[in-house]
Design a protein around this nucleic acid. Structure first.
Length: 875
RNA sequence: GCCCGCCUGGCGGAAUGGUAGACGCAGCGGACUUAAAAUCCGCAGCCGGUGACGGCGUGGGGGUUCAAGUCCCCCGGUGGGCACCA
């Protein structure tokens, strides 16, 4: 770290200047809040206050908090403290998203049990969060890995199962043959397992799915009601849900009664068909492969093809002609070849398409490669049907149908309707809505997760664990020395009697995707200790979350799953609400410069000494250091800043203030040493300003004020109004700027010639500062308030928000800009709301303006009250 | 490829269509100090001018308007989401 900062240890220098000793003050005020239970609320609020539920995305207990957490929880705390002061009953809970793979990795690498590792991390991170002075209600804390939490999750799952919201079905997964485990897409890097490095295979497994697709339309439609969500998040969700309208139709094979079903959004182009293509995983492909070794080879090759982005981007469209042919639904006697094609996805639509090269670019690429027919059927506006031809590019624009029998002359939309009508009349197809959204596979072959509460019995099939046998708890005695799922290896755990017939049966050894844990925790906070999953009265009283805050990286999955889960909980009678988050705010990342030594190795910020000219050297060796890009903090690039160290050195308030002041909270910010040091200086300045008044007897409020007193009072009340506005609109950086302005105004007042009432006005301004900074720097706020006004016994945390005096918001004079032809030529000071004639006369008389108007003919005088006068001149 | 943001001094940024650059950071000059740190005062968009002042200026080009950073159109740059989605 740089030397510019004042370390706390030097705080009590010999100098007489008063210094704010945050190291003593912060724990003191934290204790005071706890002692007075300032942040407690009832499960069902009964004190008549309106409710406000503030929630930040709960952390994964990785071991230490990082700057992203500091930003996230500071933003939430500003909202919570502000809303509390505005008279709301504020629920602001905290907990732990405690299941997950890192705990298992720790177990493998360090031979520590995942539970021990997790709970130690939680203890450590809880202490770190507490040092931040967050107004959290710790009484509601829970960890999702606690059976007291996940037993209720198991109950919810069983209720969903009963309600038909759960399915067990085969699905393709990424299989790591060395580790013997399923991998998430993110764990597949360049087609290889991230741990084993083995080539990943696609494999079919029977898995549990939550039927989120049942809610696709609802989840899409309700996005429009989420008017306090960022537009882009709603767009991302809409794209993810991916509604498309088209037709589903069956093609009959030429030499049998079998059919192949196809989904298309372009039924209008059916007369332009030249082939039919099926996915390599399509059942028909398997049939063909069974008797055709070459087809089998092709299918196998496709299967081993990587799923990484690079592979897909460069992958050539390739196919294999099966020799089968299908009949056209409209043209008697016409048949088309059936190909297996690597670009057809089994997961979307029906896993089969009809190829119309003229009006689909992929089909065109494929047709050109394999010499298949290209028949244009949509004529672009103005084109000549006699000469219109296609080269390498398909035509996908609007136009009129031709070469298409009964569709000829129709535009694309009309032709779609007509084609669907004919398909339906023939009984071979129908108009359908198709979704990109797929059901949510929740099975994970892992130990450190919530066990899926079912039992497999050979006689009875899949049997839900009876309610009175919940929870199904994880065994403690597991080993991680073998690859695969420790639950599966456990000698006894999975062997149980069937709850129905009593015969030996097998427990499900898969656990839930951790996204399940986080899809209902926000509701559980409303009644965290209940012996049912959710106390409906409490949930309905507190939900939805009024302000949810977290990273944009959760814009899709977590938020969509939570929206689905909430609906499912409603439909199973647990709660009465259907949208979990009424307001959403997505924060930006915290970035930092990165540094590289001469040998290319990354250096930590405190190993580097930066110079004013922008160069830097390695402290230890004196060698020059390359100052790299400002980028997301990451361990690998060593550009991380430990919040614990910052708080120890500067205090929590300084860290909070800097993180709020730097820029708007939805943008990425850069953490800089100079910025923190600046924030620290400001905390000291506030303290000094307060200290200057601490021993001054508070005057009685005078009847009238002098010029300096009036100016300060106006500044104070303008600041109250401006900070309030800024906090309401999440413009925390602007709120900070307004507080700086008031501090500057107090400094001006300190220097002004003494006048009656000025000290009173200074007290008023200083108290306003304490109250206005309280959501952002709560400890300093208490300290200042306490020094100004000892003896009232009230904490700032218990006091209502300040109201600006409207009389003081109105200025005594307003400065009106005077323009000539829209160009600024001067300003004039006039009384507020002065009549237009007066203002224009004063403006015209202004020497600068008069000069600009000299010899010109004024054709128009625009007057905007209290703002501007504009003279429009002829010529 | 499709969809969506963003672009303002050296930097972060501010600005209900109405005085662009608030506030902070960095910088420069000064006071205090034996010196430094801390603190305080002052300067500061760019160009020209000793100065009064003038010209230019919110990625580029056009438009609407008395008036555009702000609204509309086109272009460029940049960041992100989705992506063989039929």
């Amino acid at each position: 770290m740089n030397d510019t900062a004042a370390p706390s240890s030097a705080a009590q220098a010999s100098d007489a200047a008063p210094r704010y000793d945050f190291a003593t003050a912060e724990p003191k005020w934290q204790q005071a809040w706890a002692d007075r239970a300032c942040f407690r609320v009832a499960d069902v609020p009964a004190d008549g206050k309106p409710k406000y539920y503030v929630l930040e995305m709960f952390p994964y207990p990785s071991g230490k908090i990082h700057m992203g957490h500091v930003r996230n929880y500071t933003l939430g705390d500003v909202v919570a403290r502000y809303k509390r002061a505005r008279g709301y009953a504020v629920m602001h809970p905290m907990g732990w998203d405690a299941f997950g793979l890192p705990a298992e990795n720790a177990a493998r690498e360090r031979r520590v049990h995942p539970a021990k590792w997790t709970y130690e991390n939680i203890a450590n991170m809880r202490a770190e969060l507490q040092r931040m002075g967050l107004s959290l209600e710790w009484e509601r804390e829970f960890a999702t890995c606690d059976p007291a939490y996940y037993r209720h999750q198991q109950k919810l799952f069983l209720d969903f199962l009963k309600a038909g919201l759960v399915e067990r079905k085969e699905s393709w997964v990424n299989w790591d043959p060395v580790d013997g485990t399923v991998l998430a897409n993110e764990q597949v890097i360049d087609g290889r397992g991230w741990r084993s490095g083995a080539l990943v295979e696609k494999k079919q497994l029977s898995q549990w799915f939550l039927s989120i697709t049942q809610y696709a339309q609802e989840l899409l439609d309700a996005l429009e009601t989420l008017d306090r969500w960022p537009e882009r998040v709603r767009l991302m969700q809409a794209n993810w849900i991916g509604r498309s309208e088209g037709a589903r139709l069956a093609f009959r094979l030429a030499d049998s009664q079998e059919t192949v079903e196809v989904y298309t959004t372009r039924p209008d182009t059916l007369y332009g068909m030249s082939f039919l293509a099926i996915a390599p995983e399509h059942p028909l492909a398997a049939l063909v492969a069974a008797r055709d070794p070459k087809a089998a080879d092709f299918v196998a090759e496709c299967r081993s093809q990587g799923t990484s982005e690079a592979t897909i981007e460069t992958a050539e469209k390739r196919g294999y002609d099966t020799g089968l042919r299908v009949r056209h639904p409209f043209i008697d006697g016409a048949t088309y070849p059936v190909w297996i094609a690597n670009f057809v996805l089994m997961e979307y639509g029906t896993g089969a398409i009809f190829g119309c090269p003229g009006h689909d670019q992929r089909d065109m690429d494929f047709a050109r490669k394999y010499g298949l027919a290209v028949t244009p059927v949509v004529l672009p506006p103005g084109a000549d049907p006699a000469t219109f031809a296609l080269g390498k590019d398909a035509y996908v624009g609007p136009g009129t149908l031709f070469n298409s029998e009964f569709l000829n002359g129709l535009d694309v939309d009309a032709a779609k309707r007509a084609a669907i009508g004919r398909l339906e009349a023939l009984g071979v197809g129908k108009g359908v809505v198709n979704w990109r959204l797929r059901d949510w596979g929740v099975s994970r072959q892992r130990y450190w997760g919530c066990p899926i509460p079912v039992i497999h019995c050979e006689a009875c099939g899949v049997v839900p664990v009876p309610d009175d046998q919940l929870p199904v708890t994880l065994p403690d005695d597991v080993t991680f020395d073998k690859p695969g799922n420790p639950l599966d290896h456990h000698p006894t755990w999975k062997h149980v009697g069937c709850p129905v017939c009593g015969r030996p049966a097998r427990r499900e050894t898969d656990t839930f995707d951790t996204f399940v844990d986080s899809s209902w925790y926000f509701a559980r906070y409303c009644s965290p200790n209940a012996d049912v999953p959710l106390v409906r009265e409490a949930v309905d009283a507190w939900m939805p979350v009024d302000q949810y805050i977290g990273g944009i990286e959760h814009a899709i999955l977590h938020l969509l799953y939570s929206r689905f889960f909430t609906r499912a909980m409603k439909d199973t009678g647990h709660i009465g609400v259907e949208e979990p988050f009424a307001g959403l705010f997505t924060q930006g990342m915290v970035n930092h410069e990165s540094y590289r030594a001469a040998d290319g190795s990354w250096l930590y910020p405190d190993e580097v000494e930066k110079h004013a000219d922008g160069t830097a050297i390695h402290r230890e060796t004196g060698q020059p250091v390359t100052v790299g890009r400002v980028e997301a903090m990451s361990k690998s690039k060593r550009n991380t800043i430990d919040p614990g160290a910052i708080i120890a050195r500067y205090g929590a308030d300084t860290a909070r203030w800097f993180i709020l002041s730097d820029n708007p909270p939805d943008r990425d910010m850069e953490w800089t040493e100079a910025g923190v040091a600046g924030a620290f200086r400001f905390t000291q300045r506030i303290y000094r300003l307060a200290d200057a008044l601490a021993d001054v007897t508070r005057e009685a409020r005078p009847e009238t004020f002098g010029a300096a007193g009036k100016a300060l009072r106006r500044a104070t009340h303008r600041c109250i109004a401006a900070v309030t506005d800024a906090l309401e609109s999440f413009a925390f950086n602007v709120a900070v700027a307004r507080v700086y302005e008031l501090a500057n105004a107090i400094t001006d007042a300190e220097r002004a010639r003494p006048e009656p009432g000025l000290v009173w006005a200074r007290h008023e301004a200083m108290e306003a500062i304490a109250r206005l900074i309280s959501p952002m720097m709560p400890h300093l706020a208490e300290e200042v308030h306490h020094r100004l006004d000892p003896g009232t016994g009230r904490l700032v945390a218990e006091l209502p928000w300040l109201e600006a005096d409207p009389a003081l918001l109105a200025a005594e004079t307003v400065t009106v800009a005077v323009q000539v032809m829209g160009k600024l030529r001067g300003t004039v000071d006039v009384p507020p709301d002065a009549p237009a004639d007066t203002v224009i006369a004063v403006a015209e008389a202004d020497p600068q303006v008069a000069k600009a108007l000299e010899g010109k003919r004024i054709v128009k005088r625009v007057h905007v009250p209290n703002r501007v006068v504009n003279f429009v001149i002829a010529g």
